[in-house]
Design a protein around this nucleic acid. Structure first.
Length: 732
DNA sequence: TGTTTCGACGTTTTT
DNA sequence: CGTCGAAACA
C-alpha cells in the first residue's frame, strides 16, 4: 500500500519532501494532522529513518496521543514508534531536563510548579521584599515575569524603564531564587532551561543535534520566542525542520506566542520550501464563506482562499436568547431536534464559549433538562483542594525541598503547627539560605555538618519544637520507603500515617465527595504500578503537572461537548454552537482597546467557526448575568461581518441591533428563530398587557413543565418572568 | 492555635 | 457569585 494514495498533491509534497526546512501553511480542515502522521510514517517506512532520530512537537498531549496512534496504524503495528520523541514542548523539555539534570546542575528530582504554586511563590517573594500586594497584584507581576521568560530574558537583563519594571525585576530575581531553593521549575522554566542548556553546553547540544535528524512542529503559529529558539537549536545540525501552521489560528498571544514566527522562519531559513494547503475537507461552503468573511477583516495576514467541494450546506443560524439560561435551553432544544430528525447525534455537537465562567449557566441548563454532557476544562480535577493536598504530600516525598508543598501540608491536618511557627521556620530557613526541609533537618540534628556549623540556635520554644519534629519524623519515614513502594501504595501510607484520611472523612456528605476524589487520584496513580519503582513517582507527578484541559477529552459516549474556544483548537464537530457573541465577551473587553488584541479575538472567532463541519449556530443574549448583576448585552461586532445570505436572509447584527434599541417598543421582531413547533400563546415581539405592570413586549416564551413561561419587558417596570396560566396576560 | 465571619475584590484565554 | 484575606472570636 502506498502511503500517498489518500493525499492530494500539495499534501503529498509535504510528506515526501524530507530534506531541508519546510513551512506548511495549512488552513483549517486542510488535513495537517494527516500530513504529519503520513510524514512520520514515510520517514520511518520509506526512508528507513529510526524513530529515535525524529522529534515531533504537538500542541496538546491529546494531539500527541492521536498522532502516535494514527502513525502506528499507518505503519501497521503498535510499538513501531518506540524511541520517537513526541509530545508538547513542555513535556519534551521536562524529559530532556530530567535526563541531563546532573550535567547542568539541576536536581533530577525537581518538581514542576503549577499556576497556583507559582502564584504562591510570587506572593512569598513579595512578602520577602516588603512589596505591597495591593499595589502590585501577584497575578500581574507573575504575568510580567512569564512574559520575560518567554522572551528568554533573565532577571539580571530585565529592562527597566519604569518603577513598575524595577519591582518586577526584583520580584523576578527573588522568585527564581525561591524556585531554586525548592528545586522547582515553573512551566516557563521548562522551556527556558532547556534552551539555555542547549545553548551553553556544547556536548549536550551536539548530542541532541545529531540525534534529531528530523524535527516536526505542529501549530507553529503559536510558538513563543523560547519555543522558536528551541526548534532552531534542536534542528541546528541536520536542518530538516518541518513546521506546520496557520497565522489565522494564532490564539495564544497572551502566552507569548507570536504568529510572526512564521515570517521569521522564512527569513531564518531562506531556502525553506513553502507548501500551501488550501483545500478544506471539513466544512460546507457556507461555513467557509462565513469564516473567510470574518478573517478577511484582519490586516496582519497573508490572504488565503479556502475552498471545499462539500457543497453549500445548511445556513447559519443566529439566535438572540433572552439571557444565558435561555441560551442554554435553545441549544438543548436544538440538539434534541437534530437528534429527533436524525440530522445529528448529540455526541456530534459542541458548544463553545469565550470564558470558562460562561459554562456555569450552560451546564445548569443541561442539568435541569436532564441532558448529559461532557465538560472540558474549567473546575479541573487537579485543582481540587483535597487532590492538591495529596499531591503536595507526594511531591514533598519526591523532593522534600519543595517549600510550597511543605507549607501547604505541614499543618494539614492540624498538627499544632500554627502560622507563627511556620513563619518563624520559614524565616529561619530563608536566613540560612536553605529550604524549610533543610531547616527541619537541622532542628532534628540530621543536618550536614557544614550547615550545622554556620547555623546559630534555633528560634523555637520547646512547645513548638515537638510538633515540628513529629512532622519531620513522619516525612522522613516516607522518604525512606519511597523507593520500595508504588505511587499508589505510597498514597495509601501517607493517607493513613498523616491522619489525612481520618481528618478528611468527617462524616459529612461533602467529605465523602472529597474522599472520592482522593480515591480517584489513587486510581490514576495505579497506572504506574508496573513501572520501575524508582521512576514511577517522578513520572506520575510529571504527568499530573502537565495534563492539559483537552487531554481528558475521551470520545465514546454520545453526549455534547462543552469547551472554550481555546480548547476547541484542532478539533472538529459536525454541529457547533458558539455562545455569547456579545461585545465585551467576544471580543472580550480586555482586548478591545488594543488592535492586536482585537485581531486575536477575531481569530478566536474564526477558529470557532471553522470547527464546524455541517451546521453552525451563533448565539447572543439580550441581557447577560455577570457575577450577580444582569446587564444588557450588545451583539458582537463580528456578527456584522457575516454576509446576510449565509444566515437566512437577515443581516444579523443590524437586526440584533434594532432589537436592542427598540426593545419594548412595537417594532421588535425576533431574530432568526427556528420553528419550535410550539403551541405557545405568546411569541417574542408580541405586545401584551398585564393588570399590574401595564403594557409590555414579550421577549421569550417557552414551555416549562407543561406551563408557558413568558418573559415580558414592561416599560418602566423592567423585565418580568410570568407563568401564562397564573398571570393575567392579554395580547394587545 | 483554630475557627468563623465579613468585606473587598475580581475574571480571558493555558502549559 | 465565589474566592481570598484580614479581623474578630473561642
Amino acid at each position: 500500500m502506498s502511503l500517498l494514495a489518500r493525499l492530494n498533491p500539495p499534501q503529498q509534497n509535504a510528506v515526501t519532501t524530507t530534506a531541508g526546512p519546510i513551512l506548511v501553511l495549512a488552513g483549517p480542515g486542510s488535513g495537517k494532522t494527516r500530513v504529519l502522521t503520513h510524514r512520520i510514517a514515510y520517514l520511518i517506512r520509506d526512508m528507513g529513518v529510526e524513530p529515535w532520530h525524529i522529534v515531533a512537537v504537538t500542541f496538546t498531549n491529546k494531539a500527541a496521543d492521536v498522532m502516535r496512534e494514527r502513525t502506528e496504524a499507518l505503519l501497521g503495528m503498535t510499538g513501531s514508534l518506540s524511541g520517537l520523541m513526541l509530545g508538547t514542548f513542555h513535556r519534551i523539555c521536562a524529559r530532556l531536563l530530567r535526563m541531563e539534570a546532573e550535567r547542568i546542575g539541576l536536581n533530577p528530582r525537581y518538581v514542576i510548579f503549577d499556576s497556583d504554586d507559582q502564584l504562591d511563590v510570587i506572593k512569598q517573594a513579595l512578602r520577602d521584599l516588603n512589596i505591597d500586594e495591593k499595589r502590585n497584584p501577584p497575578r500581574a507581576v507573575h504575568a510580567a515575569i512569564s512574559r520575560a521568560k518567554n522572551e528568554l530574558i533573565t532577571p539580571d537583563r530585565y529592562p527597566i524603564a519604569t518603577y513598575g519594571d524595577e519591582i518586577t525585576a526584583r520580584v523576578y530575581e527573588r522568585y527564581q531564587r525561591l524556585l531554586g531553593v525548592s528545586s522547582a521549575l515553573d512551566f516557563d522554566d521548562l522551556l527556558v532551561r532547556t534552551v539555555f542548556m542547549l545553548r551553553d553546553h556544547d556536548e549536550i547540544r551536539d548530542r541532541y543535534q545529531r540525534r534529531f535528524e528530523y524535527v516536526l512542529v505542529d501549530e507553529f503559529q503559536d510558538t513563543n520566542t523560547a519555543q522558536y529558539e528551541l526548534v532552531r537549536l534542536m534542528a541546528g545540525h541536520h536542518r530538516n525542520v518541518f513546521v506546520v501552521g496557520d497565522e489565522d489560528q494564532s490564539i495564544y498571544r497572551f502566552r507569548g506566542a507570536d504568529f510572526r514566527n512564521v515570517e521569521r522562519f522564512r527569513q531564518d531559513y531562506p531556502d525553506a520550501r513553502v507548501i500551501l494547503l488550501e483545500q478544506n475537507y471539513r466544512s460546507t461552503q457556507t461555513i467557509l464563506d462565513a469564516a473567510n468573511a470574518v478573517i478577511a477583516r484582519n490586516r496582519h495576514r497573508t490572504a488565503k482562499q479556502l475552498f471545499t467541494d462539500r457543497g453549500t450546506g445548511a445556513r447559519i443560524t443566529l439566535y438572540q436568547a433572552y439571557d444565558e439560561h435561555d441560551e442554554g435551553n435553545f441549544i438543548i432544544d436544538e440538539i434534541n431536534r437534530l437528534k429527533a430528525s436524525g440530522q445529528a447525534k448529540p455526541g456530534e455537537c459542541a458548544l463553545m464559549y469565550r470564558t470558562n465562567a460562561q459554562s456555569r449557566a450552560l451546564e445548569e441548563a443541561f442539568v435541569r433538562r436532564g441532558m448529559p454532557y461532557r465538560l472540558v476544562g474549567a473546575t479541573r480535577f487537579y485543582s481540587r483542594k483535597e487532590v492538591k493536598d495529596v499531591l503536595a504530600y507526594l511531591r514533598l516525598v519526591q523532593n522534600p525541598d519543595d517549600d510550597v508543598s511543605l507549607r501547604r501540608i505541614i499543618n494539614t491536618p492540624p498538627r499544632r503547627i500554627g502560622n507563627t511557627s511556620i513563619d518563624r521556620l520559614g524565616g529561619w530557613a530563608a536566613g540560612l539560605g536553605v529550604s524549610v526541609y533543610q531547616a527541619l533537618r537541622l532542628l532534628g540534628g540530621d543536618a550536614p555538618p557544614e550547615l550545622a556549623k554556620t547555623a546559630g540556635a534555633h528560634p523555637f520554644t520547646k512547645a513548638t519544637v515537638a510538633p515540628l519534629l513529629a512532622f519531620y519524623e513522619l516525612l522522613q519515614n516516607w522518604i525512606e520507603v519511597r523507593n520500595t513502594l508504588t505511587p499508589a501504595q505510597l498514597i495509601d501510607r501517607i493517607l493513613e500515617e498523616s491522619g489525612y484520611r481520618e481528618w478528611l472523612r468527617d462524616g459529612t456528605e461533602e467529605a465523602e465527595d472529597r474522599w472520592q476524589n482522593v480515591q480517584e487520584l489513587r486510581t490514576v496513580a495505579g497506572a504506574y504500578d508496573e513501572m520501575e519503582i524508582g521512576l514511577a513517582l517522578d513520572a506520575f507527578l510529571e504527568e499530573v503537572a502537565l495534563v492539559s484541559d483537552t487531554d481528558d477529552l475521551q470520545a465514546g459516549s454520545d453526549v455534547p461537548t462543552l469547551l472554550t474556544l481555546h480548547a476547541a483548537k484542532g478539533l472538529e464537530y459536525p454541529v457547533v454552537f458558539i455562545a455569547g457573541l456579545e461585545e465585551g465577551l467576544l471580543p472580550h473587553s480586555r482586548s478591545t482597546e488594543d488592535p492586536d488584541g482585537m485581531e486575536e479575538e477575531r481569530r478566536l472567532f474564526y477558529v470557532g467557526v471553522t470547527r464546524a463541519a455541517d451546521r453552525l449556530y451563533l448565539l447572543h443574549t439580550f441581557r447577560r448575568g455577570n457575577w450577580g448583576r444582569s446587564d444588557f448585552a450588545e451583539p458582537s461586532r463580528f456578527l456584522a461581518d457575516l454576509p446576510r445570505e449565509l444566515t437566512g436572509g437577515s443581516t444579523p447584527a443590524r437586526q440584533a441591533h434594532r432589537a436592542m434599541t427598540t426593545w419594548g417598543s412595537e417594532e421588535r421582531r425576533p431574530t432568526a428563530r427556528p420553528a419550535y413547533g410550539s403551541s405557545l400563546r405568546f411569541s417574542p415581539g408580541q405586545q401584551v398587557v398585564h393588570p399590574v405592570f401595564g403594557k409590555g413586549t414579550v421577549i421569550t416564551s417557552k414551555l416549562v413543565g407543561g406551563d408557558e413561561e413568558v418573559s415580558v419587558a414592561f416599560s418602566g417596570k423592567g423585565v418580568k418572568r410570568l407563568l401564562a396560566s397564573i398571570a393575567n396576560l392579554k395580547a394587545v
